[in-house]
Structures are given as structure tokens and as C-alpha cells.
């Protein structure tokens, strides 16, 4: 049901990500020194930018997979499932980006939220992909759902630069530069740079592991649907002229529809 290689790769990635995250936490919280300007707060830099990077990476993968589904020559259900899986993981990481950003912002600037271009864009991105996931829950045939969500996923991605540009103008045209930029470029200590890099790598590994797992679950759900479909097909084929096979009203259809919400 799943290839041995896939399983072992996933396990290896899982173990590596656990170790990497543990290392990031240890380095981030205890080994690296506090910053001259930001003090202890600098420790959040080892998680916040990496988490944000993973969110964008996830949406990038969703867009590529969506494009591959929409393009007829590479059309395959797998791309749809991959796009969906990546988007779901992406939403988790976007939420974390917003939360960690907020936690950082409160002591650094005295507010939980600022209408900075980056923050505002990320918040809209979060809502856009929540919409994408909501659209996927609409009952439809798998092809229908795949096409619709691929288009929505692609549009959401196209929308990001437009949203970003508009928010940048919105802020810069009326009140100076953004707040985040200066704090993002402190003079970085060698040890700190290393830990930041470690953060990027470890969260990317976590993403890979989650994506593989989520994708496999999507595959299982698809397989269960296929099997159920085969069973109904069998029934229809072996009992010709059978009554109560009403296409519109069959309780079977209702039941299967519920499963189709990946």
C-alpha cells in the first residue's frame, strides 16, 4: 500500500527533523548569546523567519503542483493531492508565522500587530489559503475539485505580489519605511548566523516530513474512494435490472460524498 522506499525516506526525514529541531531549540535558547540591542528577544529570530520561509515554500509547491494539474500533458490526480497537502501544511506554518511575529512585535515595538507590508500580506495569505481549503471541502467529483482548487490556488499565489505591492505603497506613501526591516538586519554573530541557518534547515525538514505524511493520507483517502467505487461498480454490473439504483437519491452517494472531502 505504500512503497518501502517512501516509508523509510519519510521515517529518516522524520528522525532527522526531530534531531534538527531539538538542536535549533538548544542552540537558540541556551547556547547563543543574547543580542546587544535586542537582548533575549533575538532568540525568536531562529524560529520566526524560518517558519515564514516554509510557509512561502509550501505555497510555492502548491502553485507548481496546481499548474502541473491544470496543464493537460502532466495532468495527474497526484498533483492535486500534493497541492492540497502542501497548502494545508502551509496554512499551519502561516499561522505560526503570524503568531511568532506577533509575540516578537509586542516587546520589540510595543504592539501585537502593525500594518506593515509583510505582516498584512501574510495575514491575507493566511485567509486566501483558508479559502482554498474551504473550497476543497465543497462536494464535487475529484476532477472537478482538482480543477477548481488548482485555479484558486494559482490565483491566490498570483495575488500575493499584487497584495504586497499595494500594501507597500499604502504604508510608504503615507508613513515612512516599514518597521520590520531594521530589526531583520542586525549585526549577526557567527554562532547566531549558524543557528539561524540551522533553523531554516530544520523547519524545512519538518515541512518535508509533514508534506510526505499529509500526501500519503490524501493518497489513502483517494484509494478508499476508489475501492468503494469499484464495489459499487461491481454491484451495478452483477445485478442488472436491480431496483432502487436511483442515481440521485441513493444513500450510498451521500455516504461517499462525505468521504470525498479530503
Amino acid at each position: 500500500m505504500e512503497s518501502k522506499r517512501y516509508k523509510w525516506t519519510r521515517r529518516a526525514i522524520g528522525i532527522v527533523s526531530l534531531l534538527l529541531v531539538a538542536a535549533t531549540v538548544i542552540f537558540g535558547l541556551w547556547i547563543t548569546p543574547p543580542d546587544v540591542v535586542q537582548g533575549q528577544l533575538v532568540r525568536l529570530i531562529y524560529v520566526h523567519p524560518p517558519v515564514a520561509w516554509v510557509a512561502y515554500l509550501a505555497y510555492g509547491i502548491t502553485s507548481i503542483a496546481s499548474t502541473l494539474y491544470l496543464w493537460k500533458r502532466t495532468r495527474n490526480m497526484k498533483w492535486d493531492l500534493l497541492a492540497a497537502s502542501s497548502a494545508e501544511v502551509g496554512v499551519i506554518f502561516t499561522a505560526l508565522t503570524l503568531v511568532t511575529g506577533s509575540i516578537w512585535g509586542r516587546p520589540a515595538w510595543g504592539v501585537w500587530w502593525t500594518w506593515d507590508a509583510r505582516l498584512t500580506t501574510t495575514a491575507l495569505l493566511f485567509v486566501l489559503y483558508l479559502g482554498y481549503l474551504a473550497l476543497r471541502r465543497v462536494p464535487a467529483t475529484s476532477h472537478q475539485r482538482a480543477v477548481r482548487s488548482a485555479i484558486a490556488g494559482l490565483i491566490a499565489f498570483v495575488d500575493v505580489p499584487i497584495v504586497h505591492q499595494s500594501v507597500v505603497w499604502w504604508r510608504t506613501l503615507h508613513q515612512g519605511a516599514t518597521v520590520l526591516n531594521p530589526s531583520l538586519s542586525p549585526k549577526i554573530h557567527g554562532e547566531m548566523a549558524m543557528t539561524l541557518l540551522l533553523g531554516f534547515i530544520s523547519f524545512t525538514f519538518v515541512y518535508a516530513w509533514m508534506l510526505m505524511h499529509r500526501y500519503q493520507i490524501a493518497g489513502f483517502e483517494q484509494k478508499i474512494l476508489d475501492i468503494e467505487l469499484d464495489q459499487i461498480l461491481e454491484e451495478r454490473l452483477h445485478e442488472p435490472g436491480m431496483e432502487s439504483m436511483q442515481v440521485e437519491l441513493s444513500p450510498d452517494v451521500e455516504q461517499i460524498d462525505r468521504h470525498s472531502k479530503v
Binding site: L29, G39, L44, V47, I103
Partner: peptide, 11 residues
């Protein structure tokens, strides 16, 4: 300082 822990804990 509380914020750092909260951030790591959230993640």
C-alpha cells in the same frame, strides 16, 4: 523574558 518562551512553545 516570557515572550521568547511563548514563541518557542507556540511553534
Amino acid at each position: 523574558n516570557g515572550y521568547v518562551e511563548a514563541g518557542y512553545l507556540a511553534v
